[in-house]
Simulated assay, not measured.
Amino acid sequence: MTDTILITGTSSGLGRATAKLFQARGWNVIATMRTPNRETELNQLQRVLVTRLDVQDVGSIQSAIDAGLARFGRIDAVVNNAAYGAYGPLEVTPLDKIRRQFDVNVIGLMAVTQALLPHFRAKRKGTIVNISSVGGRVAFPLGTLYHGTKFAVEGLSEALHYELAPLGIALKLVEPGTIATNFAGPSFDFSNDPPIAEYQGLVEALWKVMGPMMVEGSTPEQIAETVYAATTDGTDRLRYAAGEDAIQFLNNRRTTDDASFFSGMRAQFGIGA
């Protein structure tokens, strides 16, 4: 029988590229997004069901799973991709943005996973792929919210991979580096109002450092190949760096002591002692 994958956040970027890749390689795809009525491409592909799923709406999660099972009869894997990045000085970030960042990137991911576990447990088989980030292993200044959520995804995934292995359920973490063109796009939410003078030098430095990184980053299609490999390799491997920059950055972090690494980061962003 044809394997089926459910992917969250397929309206653009990595989620869309991943949906198209799995479909091209013969999988059934449940492509979920918050506004499926606007979709004009994925719903034209064979073996693809486009349906609504908002990770902040628990009812929509179960409805999407039910729709996928009704259409394809089974779900074999899930890619928890829906997420966004909130940056900016914590001091000026509204509490509702703080809550939304964790609701989408952490609570939503856990809610989708939790909803699929009974199906995977009954089959004694399933693969959960959580999209983390290099930013789940290393933090940049002004990324308190985003890095807080991605560090959380790393921790919960590591714990779950022990918990679920005896049930035949694999847990995978994909850690992309920068993805081209996403910086300052709809998946990026920057808070800086009112602008506090003491933070503005760091704000400017962040744009100068991260802007070129994003432009030169991997394409969504390149990262999707790593997602596919993680889903299908049949191993108990947990972490997959995705993109040449991610591989280099994480290798550098592993081989550098904290004091040296932090000193380098401070120098890069112009942060004095």
Rank of each mutant, 00 (worst) to 15 (best):
E244G: 13
L69P: 01
M110H: 10
V129E: 01
F262M: 15
T2F: 07
R99D: 15
N251R: 14
D76Q: 06
D189G: 00
F261Y: 15
S63G: 12
T219A: 11
D258Q: 13
T144H: 13
Y228N: 07
L160P: 05
F72V: 02
A70M: 08
G59A: 10
Y146W: 08
F72G: 00
V104G: 10
D66Y: 05
I107R: 01
A67R: 13
N130W: 02
A224K: 03
G135E: 04
L90G: 09
P186F: 10
F22C: 04
R38L: 13
V215Q: 13
L53R: 02
P195I: 00
G59R: 01
R52Q: 15
R16M: 11
Q114P: 04
P89C: 08
L167Q: 08
S263K: 15
Y87N: 12
L45G: 04
L90M: 14
V203I: 04
G185W: 08
T18I: 02
E41Y: 06
T127N: 02
G148C: 08
R100H: 13
V153Q: 10
L156K: 00
L156A: 12
T113S: 13
V153G: 07
V78P: 02
R266M: 13
L160Q: 14
L42M: 05
S63R: 14
T226C: 06
G270S: 07
G59F: 03
N28Y: 07
L145K: 06
L164W: 11
Q62H: 13
R99L: 11
S63D: 15
Q268R: 15
D96W: 01
A70W: 02
G155F: 02
S132D: 14
L116S: 12
F261C: 08
T35A: 12
T232E: 03
G136P: 07
A31G: 04
T32I: 07
K172W: 05
T4N: 09
T232K: 00
S60Y: 03
A152C: 08
R254H: 12
A259C: 00
L250M: 13
G85L: 10
T113W: 08
H119M: 00
T35H: 14
A224S: 10
D103C: 02
V29Y: 07
K125H: 12
I107A: 12
P195T: 00
V215F: 02
P186V: 08
I196Y: 11
A86R: 11
L164M: 10
F269I: 03
V106S: 05
A19L: 07
A159N: 12
P166W: 11
F120W: 09
L45T: 04
Q101T: 14
L250A: 05
T93Y: 06
V134K: 01
A82H: 05
R38V: 03
L142V: 04
R124L: 00
D236E: 15
S260K: 14
R52T: 13
I223E: 03
G148F: 04
